[in-house]
Amino acid sequence: MHDESTPLTTLLVRWSEGDVDAFPALMDLAYDDLRAIAHRRLRAAGARETLSTTALVHEAYLRLDAHSGGSWESRARFYAFAARAMRHILVDHARRRNADKRGGDVVCLTFEEAQGVSAVATAGADNGAVDVIATDAALEQLAARHPRMARIVELRFFGGLTVPETAKTLSTSVRTVEREWTRARAYLMEALSDHGNH
């Protein structure tokens, strides 16, 4: 309500009110920025050991919406969008890559964020990695049964939001997010571990 003027804000409001057509337009607007930031992060000369999606999304928002007062409302909409965008980008990429290799490898995400120099290393190995496409499919199943749980996963996993941020974005309590996140995570891990057995 504070800043209805910028195209970003307008599109975000439309999208959050259910206008599906606003999504591609938002992607057009934000994709380059998300990509550019990720790009810069990866080559950042600083001693960053990880690429944190959270940082990326925060920064993307600041860049895209530098003019607004930054009400939580508009930021929440952006987080929701960025999480969805990230999910699309990752899934599309995984699909394309798998198609290139004719079903060769499965693209995996590692579950854990590396914790700097001394983090216990899981990088390199396949353990602790999750199949993006399978996650996406499981998330669809979950969304059909409990939309909010699916949104929690989307915001936490793809958007990198913390529990309190997720709660604020979904206008619900921290406790609800914690409870549902615990369950949703269990379902996904179950669905994915099953998948891995094939």
């Binding site: 990880t50 690429l51 944190s52 999606t53 959270t54 990230m86 990752l90 990429h93 995984a94 693209v107 995996c108 995400l109 590692t110 579950f111 854990e112 964020e113 590396a114 990088a123 990695a129 999750v130 993006v132 996963v153 936490r156 996993f157 793809f158 990198g160 995570r185 996904l188 891990m189």
Partner: peptide, 8 residues
């Protein structure tokens, strides 16, 4: 499942 990490 907290955040997708670097490799991808």
């Amino acid at each position: 499942l907290e955040a997708p990490a670097e490799p991808l």
